[in-house]
Amino acid sequence: MAKILGGITTSHIPAVGNAIQNELYDDPYWKPFFDGYPKVHAWIKEKKPDVVINIYNDHGLGFFLDQMPTFAIGAANEYKNEDEGWGLPELDAFPGHSELSWHIIESMVADEFDITSCQELPVDHGFVVPMQLFWPGAPHNADMPRAIPISANTVQHPIPTLKRALDFGKALRKGIESFPEDLTVVVLGTGGLSHQLDGERAGFINREFDEYCLNNIAHNPEELTKIGRMELVEKAGAQGTEFLMWMMMRGALGDNVTEITRNYHIPISNTGAGTLLLECA
């Protein structure tokens, strides 16, 4: 049976993609951010997961407002990024795992999560940047797992509640664990933490709230479901709603997790950047 090894979160800011392209790892601005990753690299090297489930939010590449799924799951044999309008490089395809995708889709819909399946899904920086952070050179990394993208809507309100996001993860866990092959799986939750790009409040970052989230997500995620959606906008910023991806990931990890490493740094671009690795019991 498939087994979930752990979950990793990271911000997925486009500027990080540029910093990777330009190898700014030791640049004074970037070093405190990139210093959060060696322990993650070591864990991945040791565990070598077979599949990565990458939970991110599309920012206007894979989906437009004409048809906006609240939860979408990739069900293809490969995934490619495309031009998003500002010059991030187009990479070779990331190999998918369509059998596991369809198994998860069957399981989750039976579990009353009415998700959207996608046989074609161009993946944006929200998917690609975390892959590049965790598997340097991705998709050309010897340990690169097969990938399944899951995108949740944070572009347009109504967005899902934090409870729904956590419950989504719990249902995802059932879908993964009931897959009959012996596969190992890592789940990513990407985006956040606090940031706001639009309006007179642009530039808002909230260290206190980010730390509250970081301090509770491992061992007390139910507490975080008390945060209302408008409260999330208010405290995390309009785009800080990406924290929903972290909740979805957390739900997939089960009750008992061990925190292996954590990093938090302000600012990377306009964002409070958080990285967290949780290992399943």
């Binding site: 347009q156 309100h157 309006g199 007179e200 409040r201 906008v233 208010e234 309009a238």
Partner: peptide, 14 residues
């Protein structure tokens, strides 16, 4: 009803 006024912030809804 559940929307709140957050100064400098537009809730991008329907």
């Amino acid at each position: 009803d559940y929307h709140i006024d957050i100064p400098g912030t537009t809730i991008f809804d329907g």
